[in-house]
Every structure is written in structure tokens, then in C-alpha cells.
Nucleic acid binder design. Structure first.
Length: 281
DNA sequence: CGGCGGTCCTGTCAGC
DNA sequence: TGCTGACAGGACCGCC
């Protein structure tokens, strides 16, 4: 899915285009997303104005003047884009159309339907079960070396799946986990509890990777586009992701791949050795 | 509590 | 060309 940089890029694009606008009409073309749309979805939205667009982890939260919050997750393949409704022709997998005041149309598109839309009452994000048990934001104050060290210490599994666990830290998915570990010079297969001493390096690497990706507007592999319909370009800066067999741009070593917890991991055998763990070249 | 595999769904691509 | 299986950016659930 869209990971943190893609969701945040979407949030920024939406914020520019929909804050202060009123939801005039909602057209649902498919109701069965990862979860079915909530009861009376259209009626609860109709007439509401959008006050704020927030992000928590990989979720988008649209605060409405009715007091309800529209919660959205992009899943693996979802996107929001804002366009001119006059010459709009629905594309396959355009599931929900939000017609806005001021002549704008916001389209939720999601081929794989792993995304979801929901409504809940209250500003308190812990009010929603999907948000209640999320870990700290990687670019927020809670993601410190001390916090990460404690979290890693009680995990016996591999480091890379741990970094993707949204209870430990949010926003890091399959791409940015591999990219961050390469930046840190740490092998994805070492045990999480053996990486405790590198917590400070890991925090810095995750943050630097996410900031660089944000700067590039995220990564576009297949479906992801920002609210303006254009893709990000961080995929051109991947150090290891999807580059198996290619030379490492840092040291010339060969990039390896394997499945971890069912997901493809990528690393450079030379700058991320499994034994003598060291910083990048 | 931690970790793993199965599962949801559609599209694409490699291999036969 | 057409079929089949693997795999794709996520995350929940049940099971051990």
C-alpha cells in the first residue's frame, strides 16, 4: 500500500483541495470494500463541510462539521484524486464519488479493495478500534531510540517484520522497511532483540528514509497517485527495493532478496552483512 | 504476549 | 494464444 509518504502526500493534496468545501452528493458505486460502508453512509455525509484532513499512521481522517470523522485507508492499491466533475467518466474501481461545493469531485479508487472508508464520532482517534492500538508516529516525538530499544527487546523474530508491525511504529511498510535497513547498514534477518544496540541508528535511518520519500512525493509502482493524479518519484531512488541481482549503488555488492513473513525483503549482502553488523559504506 | 500462516480482492506477468 | 500460479505497497484474525 501506500505507506506513510504516500498517505501523507495524499493528505496534503486533499487538504489543499477539499478543506472548507461541502459534500453536496455522494455516489457509491461499490459498497463492499475491505469492510462494508457504514450504515447510512451517504446521508451522514451529505451537507457536511470538511474542516480538516489529518493523518494517523496510514489512515486519513477527514473532520466534518457534523462532529463525525470520515476515516479512510488506502489498502494496497487505493487512491484519492480531486478533479473537475464536468468531464469525468467513471473508471473501473472508482468506488465512491464525493461531489463537493465549488465544482470539485473527489474520487476514491481502489482496484484490490483492501482499502476502507468508515465514519465515527469524536475527535479522539482512540475512539475507533482500528486506531486504538497503533504505535507512535515515526516522525513524531514518541519514536525515540529508547522506545524502539524497549520494543525490539521483547521480540524474538526477525527485525524487518518487526519494523513493519504497526504496533511498534506506524507508517513503515514493505518498501520503506527494506530501504531503511539498507540506510542503517543492518541485515533484515537479524533478530529484533539483537538490534537493540542499534536503536539510535534505526530511528535515524527510518526517519531519513521517510523524509526523503516525502520530499519526492512518495513512490509510485502501480496504482498509487496523489490527489492531483500524478505519481511520486521516490521509486527512482530505491537503494535495494525491487533491485534483486543489481549492484548496490553504495558499494557495488549484489542485492539479495528473500521472503520474510510472506513479504519480499531486499538487502545488500556487502553493506548489510548478517554477522559483522556495521553502518553503511 | 509473540509469531506465523491464511485470508480478503484484482491485476499483471512469467512460464509452460 | 491461453491457461496457471506466483506475486504485488496492508493488516486482521485465529491458532500455536
Amino acid at each position: 500500500m501506500p505507506e506513510l509518504p504516500e498517505v501523507e502526500t495524499t493528505r496534503r493534496g486533499l487538504a489543499q483541495n477539499i478543506i472548507g468545501r461541502r459534500l453536496m452528493e455522494i455516489t457509491v458505486r461499490r459498497r463492499d470494500l475491505r469492510l462494508p460502508l457504514p450504515e447510512h453512509f451517504e446521508a451522514r455525509l451529505r451537507g457536511c463541510s470538511i474542516m480538516r484532513v489529518r493523518r494517523r499512521a496510514k489512515y486519513l481522517l477527514l473532520d466534518l462539521d457534523s462532529g463525525e470523522v470520515l476515516l479512510a485507508h488506502l489498502g494496497m492499491s487505493g487512491s484519492f484524486r480531486v478533479l473537475d466533475p464536468t468531464n469525468y467518466a467513471p473508471k473501473t474501481h472508482d468506488h465512491v464519488l464525493f461531489y463537493l461545493s465549488g465544482g470539485r469531485l473527489c474520487v476514491f479508487h481502489d482496484p484490490r479493495r483492501f482499502g476502507l472508508l468508515d465514519l465515527f464520532v469524536g475527535e479522539d482517534e482512540a475512539a475507533h478500534p482500528l486506531l486504538a492500538h497503533l504505535g507512535p508516529e515515526p516522525l513524531g516525538e514518541g519514536f525515540t531510540p529508547g522506545y524502539l530499544a524497549t520494543g525490539l527487546a521483547r521480540r524474538g523474530g526477525a527485525l524487518k517484520p518487526a519494523l513493519m508491525d504497526q504496533k511498534l511504529v506506524v507508517g513503515v511498510g514493505n518498501i520503506y522497511a527494506s530501504e531503511s535497513l539498507h540506510r542503517a547498514g543492518i541485515n533484515p534477518m537479524i533478530k529484533a532483540n539483537k538490534a537493540v544496540k542499534f536503536a539510535d541508528v534505526l530511528v535515524s535511518a527510518v526517519q531519513a528514509t521517510l523524509r526523503a520519500a516525502l520530499e519526492a512525493g512518495g513512490s509510485t509502482l502501480r496504482d498509487y497517485v496523489g490527489a492531483d493524479g500524478t505519481g511520486g518519484y521516490f521509486q527512482h531512488h530505491f537503494l535495494v527495493y525491487d533491485r534483486a541481482g543489481e549492484p548496490c549503488s553504495q558499494c557495488g555488492g549484489t542485492i539479495e532478496t528473500m521472503l520474510q513473513a510472506g513479504r519480499a525483503s531486499y538487502w545488500c549482502a556487502q553493506c548489510q552483512p548478517i554477522r559483522a553488523i556495521r553502518r553503511k559504506c
